[in-house]
Amino acid sequence: MTHATPRSTVLTPLVLASLVTVYLVWGSTYYAIKVAIETLPPLGMLGVRFLVAGALLMLVLRLRGAALPSARGWGASALVGALLLGGGTGLVTLAEREASSSVAAMLIAVSPLFAALFARLWGERSAGHEWLGIGVGLLGVILLNVSELRATPLAALLLFLAPLCWTLGSQWSRHLPLPPGLMGSAAEMLTGGGLLLLAGAAMGERWQPPSGPSLWALAYLTVFGSLLAYSAYMYLVAHTRPALATSYAYVNPVVAVLLGVGLGGETLGLGGWLALGVILAGVGLVVWPRAAQTPASEPAA
């Protein structure tokens, strides 16, 4: 039986650094994805992104003496990679063909609610102020959708399914025999990237000469979105409570909207800015340190 790693209730410097990384970097990746898929096939682009990032990370780890994953480790990594990178990031990227980067980030903000619900499957509980923060954050998302939603029904469905896959994979990963440390992230990116390339080929995606901006966006997504932010996120999943690990989903829309408006020519009305303020209030409640846990609220083995 795989035992879950005890989750810290303290905002240590490493936890704070990881939070800032996923808040800012992943908030910017929505716009970067939009630029990348202007001339690159969505799933193929992601496959290249994660394969390159995973190979580079694994090479560095091997040079530092880290052991390769076992067969069980590769299998668990493939499952997590399929859910997080294939179902999570893959569906978002497909949706961005018909939705703005701002809207994509807004709808992903339901992740903390899914995370709290999935965590209960493994006996974990969220504190009262976390549920309140989730509720306030979702209220902000509803306001955003009412005032700013500009996406086709298919894109909206994909953006609903994406966080469902992502949070299920995140919570499940803590109970699977994944390779230790960053080797787990490398294996997940390699297997997930391979699955995305196969899915793109099965869908008949075609490659054409990419533009310069698309190539720069792909490089940014590979280095910062995958190597840096994905590793930081998996650290948060392993060492913090679900609501805190997924609180990026409330901050990312702020960053995505600012970039979409400032660089991508997207627009946001008064109702949208008001909703962003409500979302940030929800984040504040989610990240507020909880009281010391009793034994009954510890993760189940």
Rank of each mutant, 00 (worst) to 15 (best):
G75P: 00
L196A: 09
E188W: 01
G88P: 01
I279E: 03
A4T: 09
W273Y: 15
S100K: 10
G264H: 12
A249H: 04
V110M: 14
L149I: 06
A71V: 14
L59E: 01
S226D: 11
P180H: 11
G128P: 02
S101Q: 12
M183H: 05
A199S: 13
G184T: 06
V52Q: 05
A151I: 09
R150N: 13
V286Q: 07
V25T: 11
A187W: 01
T89M: 15
L59T: 14
G81P: 01
S77A: 15
P242V: 09
S70G: 15
L84Y: 05
I279V: 15
N252W: 02
A162Q: 04
V22E: 03
G204Q: 10
L107T: 04
G81D: 08
F50M: 08
Y31E: 08
L196G: 04
L40W: 03
L56E: 04
Y233K: 13
V35I: 15
E130D: 09
R241T: 05
A109Y: 02
A78R: 13
P41V: 08
A275D: 03
G264P: 00
A275T: 08
H175T: 05
P69V: 11
S185E: 03
G169Q: 03
P213H: 12
L159H: 06
L16M: 14
L144P: 01
I134N: 00
Y31H: 10
W131Y: 11
